[in-house]
Amino acid sequence: MIVWNNNAFQQKGMVYGRYSLRTVYVNMVYDSNTEKFDKSQLSHAVFEFSDGTQRNADIGKIIFYKQDHSDRYLDSRSSSSSSDGTSSVSFNVKSDLLLIKIDSPLMKEANRLYQIKVDGIDSKDINGIQYNAGSTLNVTSNLKMSLNNVDQFSFFDIKPCIFFKTPEGNTDTVRLYNFEYNTMIQNFTWIQIYKYLAGKGKF
């Protein structure tokens, strides 16, 4: 006896011509000693699917960091982000500070994708700028619209740190959390997917 199941013939995901765009949810398997992952970098992963098959895949660049938060010098006042890649974060300055830089292991990617400014000044030019206690520090980012065929299908979440010198002469940091761009909200076309695959060397 043959049982026909129409669902078996339905193409899954969002269909674009001969291609199907799907979302894969991944559970990471790791031990309880998370400290050793601090500053570690992943670029490939082995995916094990429910049917028992495995696939080694390029997952871009993922960098682990230890969760840290201090509002001793900068107190988060407000933050916002938009689907078009723009974001802003505002801090109340609690003591006199001297800015040093905004940096991240992913800063090369960040500078290529974003225009980052501190109160209207390019992040590359903030070294030596003084902020006094009681003032407000504002960081904004705008996505550069020259995304290439591969970038259009990529997810970016940079999380850079702003470095500054404290009144005690020490260097401290505060992490910026809303510098991200999620392409899954975009409407793609068949030709965009074709160009993406070509850019990844699939043809």
Rank of each mutant, 00 (worst) to 15 (best):
N5I: 12
F9G: 13
F9D: 13
F9A: 08
G13W: 02
G13P: 03
G17Q: 03
G17H: 06
G17L: 05
R18G: 05
Y19A: 07
S20V: 08
M28P: 02
N33R: 10
D38N: 08
V46C: 06
F49C: 08
Q54C: 02
N56K: 06
N56R: 03
N56P: 02
A57L: 01
I62V: 09
K66R: 13
Q67G: 06
D68M: 10
S70A: 09
S70P: 03
R72A: 09
D75H: 13
R77Y: 13
S78D: 12
S79C: 01
S83N: 14
D84P: 07
G85Q: 04
N92M: 07
K94I: 15
L97N: 10
K101Y: 03
S104R: 06
M107C: 01
E109H: 04
A110V: 00
N111M: 03
R112K: 03
Q115P: 00
Q115E: 13
K117D: 15
I121T: 11
D122S: 12
S123V: 07
K124H: 15
D125M: 10
I126E: 14
G128Y: 09
N132P: 00
L137T: 02
N138A: 08
N142I: 00
N142T: 04
L143K: 03
K144C: 06
K144I: 07
K144T: 04
L147G: 10
N148T: 12
Q152V: 08
Q152R: 15
F153N: 09
I158F: 09
K159C: 07
P160C: 05
P160E: 09
P160D: 09
I162H: 06
F163C: 01
F163R: 06
F164Y: 11
K165W: 02
N170V: 00
T173L: 10
L176Q: 02
Y177E: 14
F179V: 07
F179E: 04
E180Y: 09
E180V: 01
I185W: 12
I193V: 08
K195A: 06
Y196L: 11
F203M: 13
